[in-house]
Amino acid sequence: MNDNFRKINLYILSLGLLFAFFIIITIKFPNDCFNIKDLEDWKDILLSNVIPIICLIMLFYSFFAYKKFEFDLKGTTDIPFTVTKVESINYEHLTFLATYIIPLISFDFESVRQMIVLGLLLVVMGVIYIKTDLFYANPSLALLGFYIYKANGSFKNGIRDDIVIISREKFIVGQKVSYIKLDDRIYYAKGVN
């Protein structure tokens, strides 16, 4: 269950950029007759900004998910493995951004039907990304300075080929790596000094 929770968090984190765009597109500012002391004016502003408020909450959750990954990695107890082959696959970030994030911005945010379709689409996309193990293709992580690698690793119980490593660090062959296993072939990792 913990692995699925991490995958869901990575997917939500990948939508962080989308949430920011949604806020910019949909936010409604108060008009000139807004009275800061009037409760009705505040109620009107909140009701006219439901989507930006939900997106802001999701942005905060994305930040929480990111911090949780950092915290989990510091407390990993698995024996580090040695990188035996490494190749950058950072283009995966752009694939997700161009294929999914950009087209979603074109939805009509004034239409309730389109908002329902958008919500369902995000859920279905998340399920597909998690089931197909593509949750690591994450433009938010790219903005935060993470790299994606396809690598081979020498673990305590043998060699594993074609694993995917998500990391803030650049890896080289022979480097020892501490990790959190997200999936049978996907690891969130950092170098061991």
Rank of each mutant, 00 (worst) to 15 (best):
Q175G: 14
V173S: 08
K150W: 12
N9W: 12
S167L: 09
F71I: 14
Y91L: 07
V123R: 03
L182G: 02
I159D: 01
T95L: 12
I116Q: 07
F29C: 11
K181A: 13
I116W: 06
I165H: 04
S178Q: 09
L10P: 13
I180G: 14
I24H: 15
Y61S: 07
F22C: 13
L15K: 07
R168S: 07
S62G: 02
K28Q: 04
V112P: 00
L17C: 03
A189Y: 03
I12F: 09
F60D: 04
D133S: 12
F19S: 03
I101M: 04
G126R: 00
K156N: 14
R6E: 10
T77P: 11
N90Q: 07
E110F: 15
V117T: 06
E92P: 06
I186H: 02
T99R: 03
L94R: 15
A142M: 05
V173N: 10
D108G: 03
N35Q: 02
M58N: 03
S88P: 05
I102V: 06
Y11S: 11
I51Y: 10
I128H: 10
V86C: 04
N152L: 05
L39N: 15
V127L: 12
G191R: 04
C33F: 01
T95H: 11
Y188P: 00
T99K: 00
G191W: 02
W42F: 09
F60Y: 07
L94D: 11
D108V: 04
K28T: 06
G158L: 02
K43I: 05
F69Q: 15
I163L: 03
G126W: 00
T76M: 01
Y147N: 05
F107E: 05
T82P: 01
L104W: 01
P52H: 14
N138D: 10
R185T: 05
F109Y: 13
K68S: 13
G145D: 01
Y187P: 01
F64Y: 11
D44Q: 13
F155H: 08
F69R: 13
F64N: 13
Q175I: 00
I166E: 13
L104Q: 14
I8P: 00
G153P: 08
N31A: 01
A151E: 06
D72R: 13
I186A: 03
P52F: 10
D72P: 08
S48M: 07
A98G: 10
I53R: 01
N157E: 14
F63T: 06
D161N: 13
T26W: 02
E87Y: 05
K156P: 09
S106L: 13
F146Q: 00
C55A: 11
